[in-house]
Design a protein around this nucleic acid. Structure first.
Lengths: 163, 163
DNA sequence: GATGAAAGGACTAAACC
DNA sequence: GGTTTAGTCCTTTCATC
């Protein structure tokens, strides 16, 4: 699994375009980033091979699908293996993060309505302490992520040697 | 913005396939869901028009991009407008949810290293109380969401009328 | 919704810079 | 590394069943 391959301006623009619309053709991508179509295709292939691009997914509108409520469930004092098992068995869990701190799990879930929310949260309550917050709105979702700006990257302190 | 159009088995399978790989051709999609290519194309077009499919995005590996740490930041006692402004100015924020409860905001961020984490969190600390948890692992991410199963959908209680 | 035909566009590979 | 060209393949669109 190669990591941290050098990314230049073309790669950055390709990543921006494909995060904004993953279904454009390689020819259209080339036009947008000012590369020929074969050059764009080759760069995308390398970004995929390097693992920088890990996939392409359609985004669905949960409301249109019939899920009226999204919520964050924090889970504390849970037994690791049992929680992982319950997460894997629960399709309403969109994202599940194991985190440091008092609450060891943070889940994002989608449910139809309040009775459904109750049903899902109750399953986790049986294994651990939970705290549920309903998502009211999301001013940012799926931010397009590009390589860190140079000013944010602190070079490591060089070790003093006897050279 | 049309919502809750009826979705049949074909639509469900199309949504599953496109959430798993958004770059397949309409011909390949048709093969996978056992529809002709024009039929598959037309259904995708309708799902897009109805807003069920809201977009297609490439997923990037944050580690490969150079972001070594992901974290959840909970923000409490914040002034709404100022927090929204700060979120919009902070590219490290991947997702930002305004939620019910004590902590009114839950942010997911990606940073390069601990100094960078410190820098980002400090900006939010100046406006509100924060609590930061580093993400250790994520046993589930980007769950494929399909229309709710029938057994989860509770029909509304019919009102008693004088008919 | 399927089939078949026609047109347009996209991808692959090669030669060249 | 990128570009251009040429050839093939695929996709899309339309009309018909």
């Amino acid at each position: 699994m190669p990591e941290s391959i050098p990314l230049d301006g073309y790669d950055t623009r390709i990543l921006a375009e494909l995060q904004a619309d993953a279904r454009i053709s390689m020819a259209e991508l080339g036009r947008r980033v000012h590369l020929s179509q074969p050059a764009a295709t080759e760069r995308v292939r390398k970004l995929e091979a390097a693992g920088v691009i890990s996939g392409y997914r359609a985004t669905v509108d949960l409301g249109a699908l019939g899920y009226g409520i999204r919520a964050i469930v924090r889970v504390a004092r849970a037994e690791y293996a049992r929680i992982v098992k319950l997460i894997k068995e629960t399709p309403e869990v969109i994202n599940a993060f194991n985190v440091t701190g008092e609450d060891s799990w943070i889940l994002e879930i989608a449910v139809i309505d309040v009775p459904h929310l109750d049903a899902v949260v109750t399953r986790f309550c049986l294994l651990a302490e939970t705290s549920t917050s309903i998502i009211l709105n999301a001013p940012r979702e799926h931010q397009v992520m590009l390589p860190p700006r140079a000013e944010d990257v602190k070079p490591p302190i060089r070790k003093i040697t006897n050279a």
